[in-house]
């Protein structure tokens, strides 16, 4: 067995948490070769080499690989794919964009959002917004997987893997990057935070998110939102937790003024402890909450911040 793992790299460098969690999953199979691809990638590769379980880091540097555009990144992975039994990546928006394209060109199925690796060919993944867990056995020669990072712990960083630079083949040019608009967030990143404080439509305005942020600051938590809050324009899309947003599994998830629709629960049901604060005692969120408090978030949240 040999595993090729696509490291999650952004313009600001290696996304250590997502990559290290995917390594934890992949190293259950065998040692991992980590591919760092981008426009300027040497620093990210140096950091990637520290991740335990990584036997080798491959650097592929080319202007066409900046911003992880799907077509050139896919062509690069295919040029390196021979000999690998598994091609793996953390299930980020970049990997979800790229890996199905890789799989199709290898004429294999992709296995999305793996939450458990049972063996080299058998994997578990959630379906129906997390309401069922499917165990699938792949009959394909190469297994292409994305890993749901929230269910794996990040690997430690005590390694010093070899770093090797590869020649980048001629890459297709069908798409042009124009710009990124990245939300500047002060606190921890949503999908790796130990504590998440989320609000729903009941928050009422962008300004009112101030009380959520204040509580989040106190707890060193990331701020999340339900789709209703995002659609109403109270929070940026990027904060959305759920089937179509981010999937989180923190130690503590505080849902403030969130009713608990199926699609929202899909994104946070794996949290260790769930706290629900809602005025409606019949809200479905109370069925999954470990601790529920029936009350107005505008009373409860500031009190909570004060008492912590």
């Amino acid at each position: 067995m040999s595993i090729l793992l696509l490291a999650e790299v952004t313009e600001s460098g290696l996304a250590v948490d997502a990559t290290a969690r995917a390594v934890t999953a992949a190293r259950q199979l065998d040692e991992v070769t980590l591919l760092c691809a981008g426009g300027s990638i040497v620093d990210a590769a140096a950091q990637a080499a520290k991740i335990d379980g990584v036997s080798k880091v491959i650097i592929a540097e080319d202007a066409a690989l900046a911003h992880r555009m799907a077509e050139p990144t896919t062509a690069l992975i295919l040029s390196l794919a021979e000999g690998y039994t598994h091609i793996v990546a953390p299930a980020t928006s970049d990997a979800k964009n790229i890996l199905p394209r890789v799989a199709a060109l290898l004429d294999v199925m992709v296995i999305s959002d793996v939450i458990q690796i049972d063996s080299a060919d058998t994997f578990q993944r959630p379906i129906y917004a997390g309401n069922a867990i499917q165990t699938v056995k792949s009959t394909d020669a190469v297994k292409v997987l994305t890993i749901r990072t929230s269910v794996f712990e990040p690997a430690d960083m005590n390694n010093a893997a070899a770093i090797e630079t590869v020649d980048v083949p001629a890459l297709p040019n069908m798409s042009t990057w124009i710009e990124d608009k990245v939300e500047a967030s002060k606190g921890p990143e949503l999908s790796s935070a130990k504590v998440v404080v989320s609000a729903g439509r009941a928050i009422g305005s962008t300004e009112n998110f101030g009380i959520i942020s204040a509580l989040a600051n106190k707890l060193d938590a990331a701020v999340g939102a339900s789709r209703a809050a995002v659609d109403a324009g109270y929070a940026p899309n990027d904060w959305q937790v759920g089937q179509t947003g981010k999937v989180v599994a923190p130690n503590l998830y505080l849902a403030c003024g969130i009713s608990g629709a199926i699609q929202h629960l899909a994104g946070m049901k794996g949290s260790k402890v769930i706290v629900a604060i809602n005025t409606d005692p019949d809200a479905p969120i109370f069925q999954v909450a470990d601790y529920g408090l029936v009350g107005d978030l505008f009373d409860v949240v500031p009190q909570l911040t004060e008492q912590l």
């Binding site: 199925m109 379906i127 309401n131 499917q134 699938v136 792949s138 999954v288 529920g292």
Partner: peptide, 19 residues
Amino acid sequence: RLSIITTAEPPAREAGIIV
């Protein structure tokens, strides 16, 4: 290409309490 071995309920959460 993926044969489905089994489809299971996700682990149920223990009932919580109202404070």
